[in-house]
Nucleic acid binder design. Structure first.
Lengths: 233, 233
DNA sequence: TTCATTAACTTTGGATCCAATAATACCCGT
DNA sequence: ACGGGTATTATTGGATCCAAAGTTAATGAA
């Protein structure tokens, strides 16, 4: 089959996050390798990497186990993401925004404004919002020019629900989505305003609070039989 | 030879940090494997892990390269460590200290007080201080009960100079050391005071500032020919 | 002499092999 | 039937093999 090494890690990570690998399930090399139709070598490397990311737990001589991600851990990750993005925003403000960064952030704001113009969101709008949102955050982190933040955030990026792009939406309630994303977007405006005016402390506080916007929805999820399900409202 | 896999990672990491592998040096699998007298498999795993830690950089088809750690990156790491430990301290304060945690922190303070009693430090004293310091920080982070902080800090632990135990000392100037470590110890007292009184915001600010105590000494270091040397004062 | 084309050599990454070891199953004695 | 000890199996982890791809070197023509 000869899949690329990195893609094996991604495939396994997806299977864990999506719940195809049930939390607590034991994962051995040989069955997993056969399931993907590749040899054990890339599986071994992937297992180690995923253990380092915190998605798997090593059992001595018994392979690995899918870690059960608790609600508390999600909240923890969001807090960590908040302080790190807050630090990035403050450093960006203190160093001063480059014109290119300012333009990119501004165009994110304009794009978002357009999405909320009609008072309703389509599913496509939500997807566009997510892309814009990721771009906004990535631009901001890059603007801090602090590589240590990158590295630290890369870890939590892989944790379910904690990452910026995991602003998962509930397709059943586009009206609720509208209000939540609109609130988040208004925060982007405030963050932008603080940034261009060099208000480091303010933007740091805003960014921490903004991270909590992700959290609102983790209430909708519950763990049942180790599998993540969507609670019916 | 059959060394344990984890130990291979540690050995290579030490060689990088100690400067035995010069920054910018290219590292290929086969020569490295021969040098350690083992096969390429554990080397490959170790290279990947060290790249994830940020100590190595992958060159496509050309193996890996020892990353040149710049002064700016050290400062960045310290900032990140500061906000993360600050978050840990705040969460510990907000949740309330357990009696056991309080006792452990207190005994660190008492131990430190004893070291500074005589007005001078021996090299042994400095070593004891470092152990106490690590214990203080580890206890505090554990008290936050936030596993995401652990994970994020683990990364920067491996970066030279950024970690809490890298309060490296200059044996030529024990008098300077006395003052610097004494200042850091006084900060520990303030942090303890804020913690037991549940002052979350204060302890967070103190902790961020405390991280900068590590930084004072990076001024003494300079990069020359890619190798870290001690600048003569 | 210089540039291009091709051949040889490096070097990585996956596949497979083998040894060490822990877990399990089995068997025999009580 | 039950328990202890031994044999078998399962499973990891390092070593080695092989193929794909890149880099360097060499040769030849302009």
């Amino acid at each position: 089959m000869m899949r690329d090494g990195q893609s094996v890690i991604r495939i396994l990570r997806d299977k864990i996050i999506s719940g195809e690998f049930v939390a607590g399930e034991r994962l051995a090399e040989i069955p997993t390798a056969e399931r993907l139709g590749i040899s054990r070598t890339p599986i071994r490397i992937a297992f180690r990497a995923l253990a380092q990311e915190g998605l798997l737990e090593k059992l001595p001589r018994r392979g690995y186990q899918v870690r059960n991600v608790t609600k508390a851990q999600i909240v923890d990750s969001v807090e960590v993401r908040g302080v790190l993005e807050g630090l990035a925003a403050r450093q960006a403000a203190e160093a001063g925004l480059s014109e290119s960064t300012r333009e990119q952030l501004h165009s994110c704001l304009v794009e978002g404004d357009k999405l909320f113009e009609n008072g309703v969101l389509s599913e496509e709008d939500v997807e566009n919002y997510q892309n814009m949102n990721m771009h906004f955050h990535a631009t901001l982190i890059a603007a801090s020019e602090n590589s240590a933040i990158d590295a630290a955030l890369a870890l939590s990026d892989h944790l379910p629900f904690a990452s910026a792009n995991a602003l998962t939406f509930n397709p059943l309630q586009l009206q609720v989505e509208y209000r939540r994303l609109h609130y988040a977007h208004m925060q982007h405006h405030a963050i932008y305003h603080a940034l261009v005016n060099g208000q480091g402390a303010r933007v740091e506080a805003l960014m921490k609070e903004h991270a909590h916007a992700t959290l609102a929805y983790s209430d909708l999820f519950d763990k049942k039989n180790g599998k993540t399900i969507l609670k019916q409202p």
